[in-house]
Write a protein that binds this DNA or RNA. Structure first.
Lengths: 212, 212
DNA sequence: ATTTTTACATACTAGTTGGTATATTTGCTG
DNA sequence: CAGCAAATATACCAACTAGTATGTAAAAAT
């Protein structure tokens, strides 16, 4: 699968550290030293620190966020439920630790967009990737009458992703997982009014009752 | 008004620099040097860099955000319109430069909440200040039947503030003021469905027609 | 008037940061 | 197996960062 395991070990380790402390506070040399990899190897694969950042976005973060929304790719029905459940997942996957760290991508966006143009562009790509998936899904949802015809798929996609971001940001400063889940629940309620033709939370109930 | 102008000059200058580059990237000594103030003076007033940060939050940022929502304080009618217009202001005040920088408070929240506990606590205070104002206003809006009775004032306040945050974050990475205004417009549309009894954008039209 | 405290100014510094320079080892190709 | 490039190790380093240490002038207290 992968020809070079050293490079990948470096990248993975740096990513894990960066998830916790952010990019600027990442000390790549110290991280790889803990893997018994020398500074020479590090700078062999990544000429500058920014190159580590670029690679993290392209090779780890981008696939990660594509996978996150992958349930919506090329679907033609059940879209409203899938969107609802993906947001539900966001709550279920939250832990106190994760909330204190915040969302890696969102953190990077705020930290690096203004610092380095290429970094910003790469983060924008990840953002666009998600928006396009959501947009296509919402469009399909409108076609099969699961999603209200009045909504603009593109701006709704941006808004939804932005709203999730907002939940992470507030919850991080409140340092509370409960704040996060309650905000996401509030978001879901709004979407039931604004986005869905039928209430997906009830459909989910019906489905679980039917399967019981 | 203020006894010590040197301290205030330092604080103001550091704040302006921090707005642009963030807190960790702030070089306080170099900033004050450009004011012809020495390092000695700087460390006389602020023993550590964090103390500058704390003072910035308490003395500049907190009043700034209180003022931002001040139209809502102790109101008993016209609340829906005021909320709508405050959000409208957010669009009108946006410039390309501001969007690239993002919102100072939101930037600080993401940057510093995980770094220093006291910093996080102070940022939380500013957040809570805004939430309380909004919450009280929404409650009053429900009482005078301008805001739908179903909404929970506290979680709606959090969500609204978080949603604005999301608009800033996305627009910063897209590096586009247009993205910001269109996202905020989308947010307003959602609120018309979810929050208001009557459509405040139409009330605004009616008001401007009536005054003509 | 003298002591004490506040408000600054200047010079220095320990630790860190993101690297280089250079040497050595490994693995592959002919 | 010679020879060459890729991979890794080790030692060094200049710039920077957030301060200290120390000294002095002026204001305030006694």
């Amino acid at each position: 699968m992968s020809k070079n395991t050293t490079r990948e070990k470096i990248l993975q380790r740096c990513f894990e550290a960066m998830e916790v402390v952010g990019f600027e506070a990442l000390r790549a040399d110290k991280e790889v030293l803990n893997l018994n990899i020398s500074k020479g190897a590090l700078y062999h694969y990544f000429p500058t620190k920014l190159d580590i950042g670029y690679a993290m976005v392209d090779e780890i973060i981008k696939p990660m966020y594509e996978k996150k929304w992958s349930d919506l790719i090329d679907r033609s029905e059940g879209i409203a439920n899938s969107v609802y459940e993906l947001i539900e997942n966001e709550k279920n996957n939250a832990t106190e630790k994760k909330i204190l760290r915040g969302d890696v991508l969102y953190n990077l966006m705020l930290e690096m967009s203004g610092v380095d143009a290429k970094f910003r562009q790469k983060l924008e790509e990840v953002l666009e990737l998600q928006v396009r998936i959501l947009q296509k899904a919402i469009l399909a949802g409108k076609n099969c009458n699961e999603i209200k015809s009045g909504v603009d798929s593109r701006s709704m996609s941006y808004l939804l992703i932005g709203q999730l971001h907002g939940c992470y940001a507030i919850a991080k400063t409140r340092a509370s997982k409960d704040v996060f889940t309650s905000m996401v629940s509030g978001l879901q309620k709004q979407l039931i009014d604004v986005l869905y033709v039928n209430d997906p939370s009830r459909s989910a109930q019906r489905a679980s009752v039917a399967s019981a």
